[in-house]
Simulated assay, not measured.
Amino acid sequence: MNSKSKSKSKSKFKIRHLAALSLTAMLVVSGCGNNTAGNAASNGSPANAPSSAAAATTVPAADKLNIKVSFYPMYEFTKNITGELADVEVLIPAGTEPHDWEPTAKDMAEISDADVLVYNGAGMEGWAQQVVDGTSGSKLITVEASKGLEIMEGTEEEEGHDHEHAHEEGTVSGEADHDHEHDHEDEQGEEAHAGEGHDHGGLDPHVWLAPAMAIQEVRTIEAALSAASPENAAAFKTNSEAYIAKLQQLDQEFKDGLKDTKRKDFITQHAAFGYLAREYGLTQVPIAGLSPEQEPSAAQMAEIVEFAKANNVKTIFFETLVSSSVADTIAQEIGAKTAVLNPIEGLTEEDTRNNLDYLGVMRQNLEALSAALNE
């Protein structure tokens, strides 16, 4: 970005300072749950920052875009677009379940002092709309990565309806002609809109788990960053296209790996994989709903057990960052095993040690799904 004079810098600092104070005073921020207890992780970028095709041009720190992103997938996508041409920092610490996180007054001040805030939207970050409203008229550019995508409503499975009926009637055909611009309608045939609040407004925000939809999020972020920093637009475009090529390859790997599986349904503890299921002709049968902390009722548990026995399910999936107790209970009841299907809402310490990123974890998901669907 262009350098500012000292007087303009002082004025800018005062404006930012006043905006931060105003936000701290006026916002009562509510996240998707209570803060995760005992979390010792600190804010900052993941240790295994994604590689980028960015040019090796050295940009003075004062001239770089200051970008805050909500949680890990948004960091991965944004950092692969900017490379070293921007400072990108993730707000939700590693190892923290994003549904549980709330921004502190300090976080709010840092957001207001940034140039850009990138968040997923579709109800994932319950606090995001308040930030957008609270910074209206300021210099902060907010980017809702899922904007323009068709957001699915909570399915019958997630609302505790009959799973066997959903299995018979709700299987998504893998033969549909997708143009991957994703003018999809939800499974009830109605157009859905982004929701707010603790329960995501009854909508499914997990669009990043379908590589083809992740591509659209990358394009949305790239367009916004190019508008925010026109002098770097060409580099952002080059980086974006290089990363999109990797996502397209990943999408093809999922198509090839899942098209001829023995079964098409899978049981998962958290209803996070609806978009992935829709893309590849699968049926997600969630034990609970969209929130990973939602506890299923006794009736829902019995229904899942009945479905698993009737359909000879041998693997019950649970996710990282939350307890596997519900999946363990059902697996023990039917003599099945458990396995991880990762919603990539944050990297674990093990992921970091193994230098995994979005692409690597998604390939692990593909391997796990392929194994379970071919048992």
Rank of each mutant, 00 (worst) to 15 (best):
M1E: 06
S5G: 11
K10S: 13
S11L: 13
K12C: 12
F13D: 11
H17P: 08
A19F: 05
A19N: 14
N34Q: 13
G44H: 02
A54L: 13
V59I: 15
A62I: 14
L65K: 14
I67F: 10
K68F: 10
E84R: 02
L85E: 08
D87Q: 10
A109L: 08
E110D: 05
M124C: 06
E125D: 03
G126A: 11
A128M: 04
Q130R: 04
K139M: 00
E150A: 04
H163L: 06
H167R: 11
G170C: 13
G170I: 12
V172Q: 12
G174A: 09
A176I: 12
E181G: 05
H182V: 07
E187G: 11
A194K: 06
D199A: 05
H200Y: 06
V207F: 01
P211I: 04
A228Q: 14
A228V: 03
Y243D: 04
D265M: 02
T268G: 06
Q269S: 10
E279R: 13
G281S: 03
T283C: 13
Q284F: 14
G289S: 02
L290F: 05
A298D: 04
A299H: 00
N312S: 01
L321H: 02
L321Y: 15
S325L: 05
T329F: 13
T329G: 07
I334D: 02
A336L: 07
E345Q: 14
E345I: 11
E350K: 14
D351H: 15
T352Q: 13
N355C: 07
V361Y: 09
